[in-house]
Design a protein around this nucleic acid. Structure first.
Lengths: 334, 334
DNA sequence: ATGAAAGCGCTAACAT
DNA sequence: ATGTTAGCGCTTTCAT
């Protein structure tokens, strides 16, 4: 109902609708007296200009799109992204915009069909995207569309403004702690990572190796997975053949990936409590695990907030200070 | 750039734009021949009609709003909502719509300012809302606006279409298990809940009491909190005065609430491992806690999916089958 | 079957 | 300072 339009407001105030528009948008060309009259009337009748009409006239939607990486069902299950979304939503709403969540669909020939349509239909003014596994078709489309965007994390094929954490340093610090915790007799650390193509995977591997080298620790093994449950299981089984008596693990990502690895290790009869464990991700509930764990806690809220801020900079033709902004991770010992 | 509009398409195809529109929308009044020509042209040039213009002409945005309960910073931190969002997003995108996330802001005099504006500006075609603590001002506005909406959970003041879980049965079953696990010498179960006004809190308390009664178990205590960290701490401290030697806990909600309670119990020197614990919520990582726990797992994906489906029913003037649709919870023993 | 034209509710350029 | 008017890119009557 509330069929109130700018026309009724104009009539009620005995002015032209352009005057109402100017008053509402804080533009000059309206006397203080008339402006006040309009503003108080608008407040009285609880009027807000129709978002769609304004969007069409101004050629901007007031909507920011947030694109999740991977398929929604697996990525959202991790706590990582939800904390990021929270921060982005708050920042976006603070700027008077709204957030649209875009989830690559899992059961679809084209996982980015939804994103593709959003771009083609000009449904959003800007995009914040998880940087990994975006295919070049969709990236080309986005670039051509001219829609401003920022990454969370980095994409090897598309260097662009992004917020990232200091993955190498984090992995380095966790590994140093692992080695410190290991007695002198222990000699086998297994590092399990996600896809090798991802920049953060490379960085974390580098940090891991750097720490091992620095400590003259040569008994390490590195295994990569594609994060799928099947491939992870297969990889861990192989790992246990190569390295039947590991002393420590550095698991280079958290969430379901970490849990899948734990499940398999337990299934294979490994006593997890005897392992020194490090993981790149943190969760409050780690306080109550029946094994101790060294974790790297990412500043998720800050990541989301800065991503949104940089996007707004871009939208207002202001270049963010740095191409890639690195945030520090916190090492948590338990 | 991609400045393609229906006008260029019309020119390229040598037809009127109204014909293009009809062809695109699958309406009759276009010969098969012309329709095919237009459709293949549109596919060639990768054209999609501008969402905003279409929204204005059709008086619908193609956007569904999802309103989180409480303040975003605390509610989103729990895994509960993110799984629900995933399911809703997929269902909404399946219907060719998009999802807008609306988070009540924490640091604001009016927590629902954002939602209020969205309603007044007609930014969404429908709303899915967490049912708890919506104030009557915002609910009145939504009702007046005529925007279709469904609840997840139930609101005592606004009986309306909603998806809920069988809270009483879940609490009952968890409590039965707790009592089963308790030896005959143990006599003290403490139940800690959220706000007493919430319908699900009442239901869970009822289920808890029903199980105790059935087992002729009279040594129980019930404590309510407002979910805030401070109030939860205060309540647990009081609890330990009333009941210094508890044997079991039924914690009627999960997420940060559950963890806060664990933190305080540990801080107060209680040996959690000796307690029988039940909680209304589940998490995969519970497999690795250093104490055993009985949990009620909610069908989060189904909740989100059904909420979206019922909303679409409502939007197409089709009443959902039931006012409140109850889903079963799964009891997980560990 | 096709096309011309009005209109959705705004904003912005242009008159006055 | 205020009002008139022309779009924004579609959909939808209404003629033809």
């Amino acid at each position: 109902m509330s069929k109130l339009t700018i026309n009724e407001i104009a009539k009620m105030a005995n002015v032209a609708k352009s005057t109402v528009s100017k008053a509402l948008n804080g533009q000059k060309g309206v006397s203080d007296e008339v402006r006040q009259k309009i503003l108080s009337l608008v407040a009285d009748v609880n009027y807000q200009p129709n978002a769609t009409a304004r969007a069409l006239a101004q050629n901007k939607t007031g909507i920011i799109g947030f694109v999740l990486p991977h398929s929604a069902s697996t990525s959202l299950a991790e706590t990582y992204w939800i904390e990021v979304i929270t921060a982005i939503t708050e920042e976006v709403e603070l700027k008077g915009n709204n957030l649209m969540v875009i989830a690559p669909s899992s059961n679809n020939e084209d996982p980015y069909e939804s994103l593709r349509n959003i771009v083609l239909r000009h449904s959003v003014d800007g995009l914040i995207m998880g940087a990994e596994n975006l295919n070049s078709e969709i990236m080309d489309l986005i670039q051509k569309s001219g829609i401003p965007f920022v990454f969370i994390g980095q994409n090897p094929l598309y260097p662009h403004f992004s917020i990232d954490v200091n993955n190498e340093e984090g992995a380095y610090l966790v590994t140093k702690e692992i080695i410190k915790h290991l007695g002198d007799n222990h000699k086998q650390i297994c590092c399990i990572t996600g896809p090798k193509e991802y920049i953060y995977t490379k960085n974390r591997i580098n940090g891991f190796i750097k720490a091992c080298d620095e400590e003259n620790f040569s008994g390490y093994h590195i295994f990569s997975t594609d994060y799928s449950a099947e491939n992870t299981q297969k990889t861990v089984v192989e790992l246990l053949e190569v390295c039947p008596n590991p002393d420590a693990f550095f698991i280079a990502a958290g969430g379901d990936f970490f849990l899948s690895i734990m499940d398999i290790l337990r299934l294979e009869g490994l006593n997890i409590k005897k392992q020194v464990l490090g993981v790149f991700d943190d969760a409050r509930i780690f306080d109550y695990l029946d094994f101790s764990i060294i974790s790297a806690k990412q500043p998720l809220q800050e990541i989301g907030q800065l991503a949104a801020k940089n996007l707004f900079d871009l939208m207002f033709d202001k270049q963010p200070e740095k191409q890639v902004q690195y945030l520090s991770v916190n090492i948590i010992l338990r």
